[in-house]
Nucleic acid binder design. Structure first.
Lengths: 213, 213
DNA sequence: GTCTATATTAGGATAGAC
DNA sequence: GTCTATCCTAATATAGAC
């Protein structure tokens, strides 16, 4: 494995574990057992490392996010879909922890990240619209828009919120809770296949509660 | 006005405007037109200033948050209630912007802040329970808990989420949207006085849209 | 209480040898 | 590509005079 890739890999790990602010270029060099000078040969400091890590995240996240646009989801696919989205965020959680301060320092990333959030809203609107058009949901336009916005918010800040409440974070259980928190909002609007939906929801919830204990 | 109070007041303003990380003790001294030495006479650096600002925020926020526990809210009070809560957050927004990094650096604040969030969940549960018991809402226990959690999340991260999307932030319009985003979630569960509720909601929404344009 | 002057430190960055 | 040695800078903090 090339030094450049190692730097990215270990930087991500350090940032996630210690918080980006608490990691210095020297720290990164130390865990890699290379000299600071060597680190600076590959990346001119933390900035370009963070920049590259963001591009990696952006690519992966958008790929997953936009998957349903080409091919609408089956009901039972939604669980997996949201699960994977939360996992992506968990993998790059350092970024979400201190969004504002990171984006302040790297203005180019700010507009890209903003685009990404707007895309979340659009995709959520599209998913909910499909469920509405297919007769699965009955929901007013205003409520649909509100829910899409809420989904985007939860898809951005749920993991951070969890980290705030519990010391444990980014575990399968906490992701499970996040997915349940999203999908259970559909309950009052489900018309077609309401029984099937409620059964899936209950199963999912029981599985979640079992994992907690 | 005593220098000590001035320091707190201007620090808060600077933190909100520039971001806490971008403000140095020397900056604070400069806007106050005092020497850094003088600043250090009153507060031993930024840490104690932030600590005191948090205590001020905590006190104000809890006072508002817990008001409905003594005296349940009338339906139309809820708008004002959530509005004031969002305003409190807006007043101390620097804190919410980089929660993780601030709490990392000031561990004593971390547990206090966590308590505050837990209290949000409790209070939201209590408010929704009252609406349920009084016959205004018909909602299952699971859905109520989920909604309370969601309210707490939105009451924590909505302003930050807004700041992420728009350059404009903490304006009356954005707070208005936040309140609407909370209260409109009740729609599918409203039974008693559904007409009255929908009218209030529509009025509120129109007012909001008018402000936007 | 307030100032001026100075000290300390840590993060960030580079030059030049190998 | 990698290392050693060194430098620069900005944030933080204190001493001592007024």
């Amino acid at each position: 494995m090339k030094t450049k890739d190692k730097i990215l890999q270990y930087s991500l790990q350090l940032f996630n574990d210690e918080g980006e602010q608490n990691v210095t270029p020297v720290d990164i060099a130390n865990v890699l057992d290379i000299s600071p000078g060597n680190l600076y040969y590959h990346f001119k400091g933390k900035d370009p490392i963070i920049h590259q890590l963001f591009l990696d995240f952006e690519e992966e996240f958008l790929m997953v996010l936009n998957a349903p646009i080409d091919k609408p989801l089956e009901l039972s696919d939604n669980w997996v879909y949201f699960y994977i989205l939360f996992e992506e965020i968990a993998d790059f959680r350092f970024f979400y922890r201190n969004l504002q301060s990171i984006l302040e320092r790297y203005p180019e990333l700010e507009s890209r990240f903003r685009k990404l959030v707007r895309q979340k809203v659009k995709t959520m609107t599209s998913i909910l619209s499909n469920l509405d058009k297919s007769g699965f949901l009955a929901i007013s336009e205003v409520e649909l828009d509100q829910m899409a916005e809420r989904f985007a918010l939860q898809l951005t800040y749920w993991p951070t919120y969890q980290a705030l409440l519990d010391v444990q974070t980014s575990t399968p259980v906490s992701i499970h809770k996040g997915v349940f928190g999203l999908i259970s909002q559909l309950t009052p609007y489900v018309v077609e296949g309401a029984d099937e939906f409620l059964i899936l929801l209950t199963e999912f919830r029981d599985k979640m509660l079992k994992n907690v204990s």
